[in-house]
Computed example of a mutant assay.
Amino acid sequence: MRTKEVALFIQDAVLLPGGRLEISVVTPSDLCVVADVLKGYYELAFAPLKVNSDLPCYIAATQCNIIDFNQLDNGCLSIIIEGSQRLKILSAAKKRNGCWIARALPCPNWTQEPIVGEFEIISAALEQFYQVNPNLLELYSQTHLEDAAWVSQRWLEVLPMYNRDKLILVEQPNCHKTMDFVLHLLKSYVDV
């Protein structure tokens, strides 16, 4: 696969293919990123923040699209982004306007596969999570609770874990380790 140049949106969160996230665009450099993407200069990538590193983010990132805009009560802009393609960040440089531009290599997305057997509890638990957190559910026009890859990635986005720990699972070639991890978490919670 060929490398590509992307504008980085860096935050202390994880966004994966098929996932959606609402982001407040507050700083001038954030506005420059949005403007550069909308002008077609760069494609947009979302990357988890990494401190004390040569790169400003972890190397696992996700190419995404801006799918909606909102004006917040304080007058600031928020955007809703949707992840589309896994990327590996090879290098990054900061422009004068504060925007980070990276050279990235597309990586294979996890393939869709059905949820079967004992793993169905993971899908049911995610559905309950969304009922308790309707603001997250509102981001999606439809959910794919029957797809193990989609469900696994949504759990990685919302679990309260350090990004470095999530990315160990994100960098796997498929969703199987994440499914096992989430199932173990849910079973241990029920056993308490």
Rank of each mutant, 00 (worst) to 15 (best):
G19R: 01
W155L: 02
V26H: 07
H184I: 08
E146P: 00
V182G: 13
C99V: 15
L21V: 09
L55T: 09
G98Y: 06
A13S: 09
D191V: 15
G98K: 02
G18P: 06
F119H: 12
I79Y: 00
Y162G: 14
R96E: 12
A35H: 07
Q11V: 09
D73R: 14
C57F: 03
C175F: 03
L126D: 02
N174C: 10
L183S: 12
A93Y: 02
I67R: 07
C99S: 12
M179D: 02
E127K: 11
G83Y: 06
I121A: 06
I115A: 04
P106D: 10
R86Q: 11
A92D: 05
Q131W: 02
A125H: 08
L55W: 03
L105R: 09
E127W: 03
Q131F: 03
F46R: 00
P48L: 05
K177R: 13
E138F: 03
V14T: 15
N174L: 03
V151R: 07
E157S: 12
C57I: 11
S91E: 13
P134V: 15
V158M: 11
K39G: 01
A125W: 02
F119D: 14
L159K: 08
V51C: 03
L16R: 07
D147Y: 08
P108Q: 14
C99Y: 00
Q71V: 15
L87Q: 06
D12P: 04
N174S: 11
A92I: 04
